[in-house]
Design a binder for these strands. Structure first.
Lengths: 226, 226
DNA sequence: GCAAAAGTGTTCCTTTTACACCCATGC
DNA sequence: GCATGGGTGTAAAAGGAACACTTTTGC
């Protein structure tokens, strides 16, 4: 039995969304070998006394400066050989950031961290393609039975944003009227008095997710399912 | 930055089922400190050159002699302090064994490995209670949208076994007629000519899960959902 | 013949789908 | 006034839930 010299890292697939760019993922360009110059998802080794979640948040802060809104463990990837140097087992997370934080698009001089549309991803380092695939599948699944989509939107949003978000994530078109009816029946959205224009067309009301109401209703047996 | 001396282990929650005993979990009695003499889920350190799945299968073989039918990663538990000695991060799996392998119940002299009904669990070592809770929740969820329940039954089973299995896992009674109608509509079961008696009452036909048919139908967009 | 489990169909209700017209705004 | 997106209701279809009686066997 060899002495365990397995190293443990964390990696994070960070999703951002806006109705103009669609669904995006935050990647970093690797500075060192292996895979120097290639794009990768942010991450790094776990320190001895920090929790896995802290490690993820620390690495994200160090490598991209971003703060995620929502963070959830995804899967642990541990096949020998996934890192060409040593045995590294990585606990992958995925995170969601809301539109307020999602402004790196403007920083065209950001050489190290950049948003990529999920439909236009570069070849990634290590087995990060596989990790990303799992993350996208998880997001698709989870957004249907937990109200995590709001973590990708601003606090207030026109209903059409929510609609487009689901269409984007599911990769299919959804009837506008049926979607709205179903979502409003859940009774977890507040319609505000403010209206906002998308540039053209009739302005729409802003909505806000009422988390407290959601938890109350959930406790009473309500089932989020979109 | 301290040198990473984090250790990596795997643990496995193994479920077994029969209609007499209900849903059970395989536990081992710890021989050494910490938690000597307490019950725990099987597991151990990952070796440098083995995959996580191999580590689980090896540990299960060593500690309980059992072979699982189905194995899936559950969650990774890594909070500092979960092992009082060192920092140990564990990748938890859950496995399902079918009734053929589920015969340790008879071995009353088995001091080290024993089946426990999930409703009558002892206090477990480490954070294994939490791991078990997650495993039960996952099983409940997964059995509703993937045909994994068959891994807990024999190759051939009377329909009532399947029915009772779902009632047990969901913890609620399910209308027999509606359940059968819905399940048979999926078109993934074969009704055999053999009939079997449960001791009393009218004997029922045996059924068999047709995995190939399931995969074919799934490829065509069918959705398992019970 | 009685107790126990298996087999089987119909009705009602809820949910989902499909679908079209008017309204408010910017240009 | 026209193009664009927002707002709204109804009817048909499908799916889910509720429900009872007959059959086969062991004892």
């Amino acid at each position: 039995m060899s002495k365990p010299t397995i190293r443990l890292s964390v990696d994070a697939v960070v999703f951002g969304y806006d109705s103009k760019h669609g669904l995006s993922v935050l990647l970093i360009k690797r500075k060192y070998d292996p895979f120097q110059g290639q794009w990768a998802i942010p991450g790094g080794l776990v320190l001895e006394n920090e929790s896995l979640e802290n490690a993820v948040e620390r690495e994200l802060q160090e490598e991209t400066g971003i703060h995620v809104n929502y963070l959830e463990q995804l899967y642990t990837f541990g096949k020998p050989g996934r890192d060409p140097r040593n045995r590294v087992v990585t606990v992958a997370y995925y995170g969601l950031v809301n539109q307020g934080n999602f402004e790196l698009y403007a920083d065209t001089d950001a050489e190290e961290a950049q948003w990529f549309n999920v439909a236009e991803l570069p070849k990634l380092a290590f087995d990060h393609d596989a990790i990303l695939d799992v993350a996208i599948e998880r997001l698709k699944g989870k957004i249907s039975y937990e109200p995590i989509g709001f973590e990708l939107l601003g606090e207030k949003f026109p209903f059409s944003e929510l609609h487009k978000l689901y269409e984007t994530v599911y990769g299919m078109s959804i009837d506008r009227r049926n979607f709205k009816k179903k979502f409003l029946q859940l009774n977890i959205l507040e319609e505000l008095d403010e209206k906002v224009s998308q540039g053209k067309g009739r302005p729409g009301s802003l909505f806000r997710f009422n988390q407290k109401k959601y938890f109350d209703l959930k406790k009473q047996g309500m089932n989020f399912d979109i």
